[in-house]
Nucleic acid binder design. Structure first.
Lengths: 337, 337
DNA sequence: TTGAAAGCGCTAACAC
DNA sequence: GTGTTAGCGCTTTCAA
């Protein structure tokens, strides 16, 4: 005997709707019928089929989460926070990893829509993404995380301001010859970090001395060697912590002492940054707040689906964590051997 | 006009079942009707409701993934691999993070069952977990990952053997006074690593000189200081890399040179390990293989649901990555200041 | 307080 | 090739 609401009803000698009422407390039941239903449920080991319920109710208590990657600490943490908060609210998270593949990401959004998710949380993979239009035509509440999207709801770090913070810090320490390890400039967040950094330096009439471009990964940091040499920089800004860690490693191996011979500033504040020797000065992403705000906003959009409020892009300010990898500038650069 | 299969059929002037056949290629259609259906779908912007389909077909092309955490690199990678492989096969991953909460984990499994997932992948949180019975009574194909479970399908690292590898390596380098930073012994994997490590040392008549217990997190590694001192160990084994990184930090700060003054071996091979200075010698988890095997096995179990084959626990062997943090033992311990 | 009936959107026999 | 019909398991009027 399959555990369906019908069979439970049969066994309890009541109508299916009565069982439904019991399950949803949508009507008061006499204590005897309640008892009967209860025991019928127990003997059949009945559990509601949420698929069927969703079909009927037109809501699934599920949300779709699309991320480029979850092994990157920042995204992993965001995903974790989001799953946690939604679980608390009774929502199931459907995870999709786009691996920064525009096509795949698009298909994932369509698939999630087909699965009738009540809402969508998207960290899109590139400016060429096709999810923007998709999100609109699908008319399903969507919040973009980590990246600002004009004309859509989004919660993101104020990357420009983060760049400003990094630059200001180095400037105040007396650094004037500054190098940059810059990730993919096509990634809007990276471009903004750089822009903020440059803008702040420009305020003081300083230009970036030397800049190397590469991908936002550890390997790229090793290329810091290209910045070094005669009259090289006294400080380096990496557009994320992973890259900074790579740079840090190369510097140590090249005989630089940190921070005496070279100051290094990262961006993100991943866990490992705190535990390097010296610990890394970095611009900390407001990770928790981004996650929390995104969830709250989406929940709200789901609640008043009609409310055609105008989309807003929220920028959350990052903070500078001053740790051991930055110090007052020396006059002569390079290792002091 | 809502985009349902009925309306598409109406618009195309055919029966719903015809549209269904078109969608599923479950019957050949005349090219004209195919065209009509196609354009009707396009104008209505129709997309199949997978919830309804799932209800009818009694399969949802979705799987549940329960993990204690995804911000830990090892789990993050496993989750990532699993999501990827299932997506390729057309399955949607429903993610649940238990945060090592036994009760929560249990509810999550029940919830996933209610959502009619076709299969379940579980990295359970503790030996007290209630998911073992649940998995049985629910009669839904389940594979446990990362931890062996007798009487159930499981894919896990051979942690004991990993411990052996670490011990053998240190022994062969001449280390005789060896300290251990050991994570929660209640975690079976940790206990097994330690057991293997001890067993191998015992083969050579050596005992662990000193052992400190704590949690499997970076902070704990800082307690390596408790192992140091007069006649302290010349080598340290940490039951995971995160802990090793913490230890490594403390050692550097205490003036130890690695590996001359102290050899360090970790377990996991997380990304950062490669980029420490010196890079960490560690027992590498066969992460990819665990993920891939788990997916393959689950897919297979789903395919032949009837086949009451006997559950198997698969243990995949880890490998030793010898890097810069281990070297031949010196006679006198401590920093050689 | 309980039940009958309709239907969410889809597919699968089976008929034609 | 295509249509008719029934029904997956649930909720929700509405009536009693």
């Amino acid at each position: 005997m399959k555990a369906t609401i019908r069979n439970v009803a049969k066994l309890a000698g009541v109508a299916p709707s009565t069982v439904s009422h019991y399950l949803n407390r949508s009507a008061p039941l006499s204590s005897t019928t309640a008892k009967n239903v209860e025991s019928a449920i127990a003997t059949l080991n009945y559990r509601v089929n949420l698929g069927a319920r969703g079909l009927r109710q037109r809501k699934t208590l599920s949300i779709g989460l699309v991320m480029p990657n979850i092994t990157i600490p920042f995204f992993g943490e965001i995903a974790s926070i989001i799953e946690n908060m939604f679980w608390e609210k009774g929502y199931q998270t459907l995870l999709c990893i786009s691996e920064r593949d525009v096509e795949r990401e698009f298909l994932q959004v369509l698939n999630l829509a087909s699965r009738q998710v009540d809402g969508l949380l998207v960290a899109y993979s590139s400016e060429q993404s096709k999810v923007f239009e998709a999100a609109k035509t699908l008319s399903i509440p969507t919040v973009f995380v980590d990246r600002a999207v004009s004309g859509q709801y989004s919660i993101a770090t104020d990357n420009f301001y983060g760049g400003v913070l990094a630059a200001r810090h180095l400037y105040e320490l007396g650094h004037r010859r500054i190098g940059v390890l810059c990730g993919e400039i096509e990634i809007r967040n990276v471009a903004e970090r750089l822009a903020g950094f440059q803008a702040e330096l420009a305020q003081h009439g300083i230009e970036i001395q030397h800049i190397v471009h590469g991908r936002q990964e550890l390997q790229f940091g090793l290329k810091v060697s290209q910045l070094l040499g005669e009259n090289g920089p006294t400080a380096i800004f990496a557009t994320n912590d992973i890259v900074a860690v790579g740079a840090w490693r190369t510097l140590i191996e090249a005989g630089y002492r940190l921070p005496e011979d070279m100051s290094v500033v990262g961006f993100d504040d991943i866990e490992i940054s705190r535990y390097l020797v010296p610990p890394l000065t970095t611009v900390a992403q407001p990770t928790r707040e981004i996650g929390a705000r995104a969830v709250k906003l989406l929940l709200q959009l789901i609640a008043d689906r009609n409310g055609a409020a105008t989309p807003v892009s929220v920028l959350v300010s990052p903070t500078l964590k001053i740790r051991g990898s930055t110090a007052l500038a020396r006059t002569s650069p390079g290792p002091s051997t």
